[in-house]
Write a protein that binds this DNA or RNA. Structure first.
Lengths: 327, 327
DNA sequence: GACAGGGTCGGAAGCGGTTCCAATGCTGCA
DNA sequence: TGCAGCATTGGAACCGCTTCCGACCCTGTC
């Protein structure tokens, strides 16, 4: 913006930023020249000068999980309406995980990050704080970080009670491996809710009925196949996610086990896939959690006074994969 | 990086960028100090100085279409391994569409953009060129832009032939509205393939069997309901996307029309949902198209000599929604 | 021994904004 | 009429990096 408007650089800057202290006439003249020239200030220069990037990052085990996509939608709902740009960092390997924190989540790139489904170590959180990168966690928690989570334990209870009410007594669990670097404490907590309900009902949960492995449809398929091959196979399986429930369904189909006739299956999340597959599941507010996380980050950054509304509670969505069992 | 290493700023820069002209001893000394101090150069300053952002943008009607998510996966596969950051811009309204081009796709934010499923006007392409923002198009085409597309017409033929071979003679089409600002020439081209095959077979395609409306499951549901309410309803429906096919399935379920007994349905894309719903569909290489688009952009930017491999051709995936019709 | 020329290196300028401070012009009041 | 004080404005300094140019040191050559 050559000072073709006949004013100083300072004045142009003030006009563009709606800063006070510019006479109305001047302001209008500058504006006229600005859109006559189609002038757009350089975001790059602005970032350097301001020391803020006006960019927010999302770090997530991204495309491998439909639940994450749904959360991203929620995040975009909010960020899209703000003045921030949205940057993505996908994590699928330990190297990427490290890179996300050391190279991507830095103040010269982003003002803040939303971390999805990734447990953060204390040292990592400290590093973030030291660098001045604000962070919030979605589907996870850290003592010193704002976070949004759902009641996974309750979700586990809901699912299990539903199975029990349908008459099942021998139910198995298929979930994520504990303590993996990309984990999912959530899987473990869902199992916990399950255990609670089971033991309240005076039922056993033998180790052979607890399967944990890598996330994904195929691994779940394999685990379910083992369950079905047991001398006394379970009559119902609770999967810690819909994707895994689909894997269980695959195994049942392969073995010719009727669902819900011979085997009942219940999932968790209620992603689109679950609806299409007619899967009974525990619904968690995925998109809303993304929105809440984004709002949280904006408010931490001081950009929004907005209150972050409470998330809807988890609840059961009954479809066609749970049937009565009278044993 | 205070010049604690006892060298000038120029030297530090040269070391960090592996530029020549630095004595090996000096280079090593600087490197030592760098990681002793945990020093990281500021991306913001670098961008300003370089005049490049080392950031790539994706502009897409993002979260509303699972096919787009799949393409994004492919894009991330490639960009994640490059030196570029990935920025996202979601388009769902005409305002967002305009903003994407005037505010987001600018040289101070991104070096290049991948435009997905959005038809670009000549003026828009010119503006991009003038600003020096490189662009490639995925699922779309523009005379003067590199692009990756599949053979939609052939896909339409494939689907229709399959239906014809199953004995159907009265088949309908459910697709996207023509010429919408977020369109999808692809829908139209798929219809074209359908028409070709139909007329080669000496069959009619009356206007009442061609339904076009907004993209999405619900609108497709509504359109299919109208088709089913016809005096002589179609015995098969070709939907221009899986999402729309799902909507057709919804309508059938609502009306108690058996699929594939009384109605056959075939979709397009083969997204996860299709598999879960047992939908017969035409598979297009979504993820690969994302990868190809990203490679194309990198090569346009001169960052990659990589050849962009040809995409696999579209082909039929037969599942459970197409049945024989003997009329 | 003087000098040309290559290898290294230091640091000023420049990228394009924001912001702070000083300068200017007016207004109102004593 | 003189001056304090506010509104407005211009522009230097600065953000942290890259790059270009000039300086310096050494070597080899005649």
């Amino acid at each position: 913006m050559a000072e073709r408007a006949g004013v100083g650089v300072g004045t142009v800057s003030r006009v563009l930023n709606d800063s006070p202290g510019v006479a109305r006439a001047t302001r209008e003249r500058v504006r006229a020249v600005v859109d006559e020239l189609g002038y757009r200030p350089s975001a790059a220069a602005r970032r350097l000068s301001l020391g803020r990037t006006m960019t927010l990052g999302v770090v997530a085990p991204f495309f491998t999980r439909p639940s994450v996509v749904e959360r991203l939608r929620g995040i975009d709902d909010v960020i899209g309406d703000s003045h921030y740009d949205l940057m993505l960092f996908n994590v699928e390997t330990p190297e990427q995980r490290a890179a996300a924190l050391t190279r991507f989540a830095r103040p010269d790139r982003v003002d803040g990050v939303i971390v999805i489904s990734l447990p953060l170590a204390d040292a990592e959180v400290r590093a973030l704080g030291r660098d001045g990168v604000r962070a919030v966690v979605v589907d996870g928690a850290h003592r010193s970080l704002p976070h949004v989570t759902i009641d996974d334990v309750e979700g586990g209870r809901l699912a299990t009670r539903h199975l029990l009410e349908a008459g099942h007594r021998r139910v198995a669990f298929v979930g994520d491996r504990e303590g993996n670097p990309f984990g999912f404490g959530s899987s473990q907590r869902r199992l916990q809710g399950m255990s609670e309900v089971l033991s309240e009902a005076g039922l056993e949960l033998p180790g052979e009925l607890i399967c944990r492995g890598p996330h994904g449809r195929a691994p779940a398929h394999a685990m379910a196949a083992e369950l079905l091959a047991l001398a006394t196979p379970p009559t119902a399986i609770f999967a810690a996610s819909d994707v895994q429930a689909l894997g269980v369904l695959d195994a049942a189909a392969e073995d010719g086990v009727a669902v819900p006739g011979a085997l009942s299956v219940i999932g968790f999340d209620d992603v689109d896939l679950a609806g299409a597959a007619g899967l009974t599941t525990v619904r968690q507010p995925l998109r809303e959690s993304g929105r809440a996380g984004a709002r949280l980050l904006l408010s931490v950054l001081g950009d929004e006074l907005a209150t972050v509304a409470a998330l809807p509670a988890v609840h059961l969505v009954c479809r066609r994969t749970v049937g009565r069992h009278d044993g």
